[in-house]
Design a protein around this nucleic acid. Sequence first.
DNA 1: ATAATAGTGTCTTTCAGACATTATGAT
DNA 2: ATCATAATGTCTGAAAGACACTATTAT
Lengths: 242, 242
Amino acid sequence: MVNKIFQAEPNSFIQDVDWVLYSVDPVIFTFYRDELCVLLIKRSSPPYKGLWSLPGGRVDKKACANLEQALLAKLKSKTGIENIFFEQLATYGGSDMDPRGWSVATAYLALVHESELDINRLESEEPIRWWRLSEIGGDKPLAFWHEKMIRDAFVRLRDKSLYTDLPVNFMPNTFTYPMLKQAFEKILGTSISRQSFARRMDAAGIFEDTGERETGRNRPSPVYRRIHRGGSYVFPGIIKPK
Amino acid sequence: MVNKIFQAEPNSFIQDVDWVLYSVDPVIFTFYRDELCVLLIKRSSPPYKGLWSLPGGRVDKKACANLEQALLAKLKSKTGIENIFFEQLATYGGSDMDPRGWSVATAYLALVHESELDINRLESEEPIRWWRLSEIGGDKPLAFWHEKMIRDAFVRLRDKSLYTDLPVNFMPNTFTYPMLKQAFEKILGTSISRQSFARRMDAAGIFEDTGERETGRNRPSPVYRRIHRGGSYVFPGIIKPK
DNA sequence: ATAATAGTGTCTTTCAGACATTATGAT
DNA sequence: ATCATAATGTCTGAAAGACACTATTAT
């Protein structure tokens, strides 16, 4: 039980005025039906009841020792996801973000393959679903500052996709270069030549050929796997925007 | 006055358990006596009384509407600085950061020319001074997680100095290429050829020749000025580490 | 055989690093 | 005149973009 004013050490006072409301808010992107999508939950209680929002919220201070644990717990409870790539994006806050008081929220950029989340099998109290990024930001407002967080997350994703392998976190365990290339192209909004792309990926030395081949109508593509899960590769040059 | 449990909107309850302690902590770097330095204040009250710390702290919720205002207010009150470049670095938090309770802190990376801060003229209650970066992280612990924040801030500064003009924020209004080159070199820990450096800066088109010339013992260097204050330039290529 | 897609090789462009040569100002 | 440093020009190397040509699989 927290007292309004208490003394943790001699001469060390804390007052009500020193506390803020705090949330962690993951911006979870995936490619769903070949479109870049973000996961949103419809709020069932005030404030912003009925509006769509990021699957985040308050931290369980007893259960979580730090921010990373708080985020993982939130992902587990709201989406069921346990294995996911994420990185801290930015922290937002002020008097106008939450009508309940001066509040602070840390947004995380998270990337998954859609198979990691079976929305239909998820027993959620609130409606939850993927929204195409193009659907965000029109006349349908989101709760809190979540729309800005999603915009900022996309900018981070797009900028880092020019010089890192960030989009491989959208791939399943094994994948082909055409699949990965398409992810880069959708994120960057440009087309990339097949040859340049393969050369860039081969030179990175971060993928290994599984020996398998795609099955399809045409010449099959080799199936690759990441050599090291986790971590991030920085390419020596950037993709040049046209 | 904040109640322990109150109802801001129907069915919207907030409990003590939802609050955290919150601080903003600027990592202020400068070149002082040709060395990269960070500004620290000696704490005069618990916790961590007597340890050196970043010039940050709790947010005055009444006076500050958002995080940026909170940071600017903190910079003004602790250091007197009003004009400074800064960007948000990262947010840290957990149960072990502050003995007074579960707390969250947002660190900012801030860069200034040393002339912006006259420490001697500053009437501060606590001792305040520049510390060489090489002095941080030995047997002298810092308060809270400030040592990690400083490390992370330096990594951000070093990484971004490879492909942006971030170090120009260390310069006074007018400066020479040799001055700026030295800043890049100290940050990156490498030497840069004078010719490559000048070509890179000229091509960026972000500086203008003031027409003035340095006075010194040798052939004088042109004195430049940033064309646009604020903003950040991203070079087309990166400085190649040797 | 044809269509569709993948792989290989080569040329061009961009930009950083290195170095030689020339220029300028203080002493 | 000498020294220290700045400016200019040229060559090299790394890596991306573009394109022609060849290879492979399904139909």
